[in-house]
């Protein structure tokens, strides 16, 4: 299964799925789809990065 992680926005606390290989350690800022806040994963209110945590998909 594709590895994903869930990131919780530090501003609005919405959690959303992110592609692990592309987004977790690439220094790219995540974009909160709810409030448009941009933050690096380390700034997330919480991260769920268990290897089997997310069952959503990437394209």
């Amino acid at each position: 299964m594709e590895r994903l992680f869930m990131a919780e926005c530090p501003v609005c606390h919405q959690s959303f799925a992110c592609h692990y290989d592309e987004m977790r350690h690439s220094k790219v800022k995540l974009f909160c789809p709810s409030c448009r806040h941009r933050f690096v994963p380390e700034e997330a209110a919480s991260l769920d990065e268990r290897p089997d945590a997310a069952r959503a998909s990437t394209d």
Binding site: A17, C18, H19, M23, S26, V28, A56, S57, T58
Partner: peptide
């Protein structure tokens, strides 16, 4: 650039990616 999430065909959000 940052892309997704998007509620895809399978009724799940695609994960954020580049």
């Amino acid at each position: 650039d940052v892309c997704d999430p998007f509620g895809e065909v399978g009724r799940l959000y695609q994960a954020q990616c580049l």
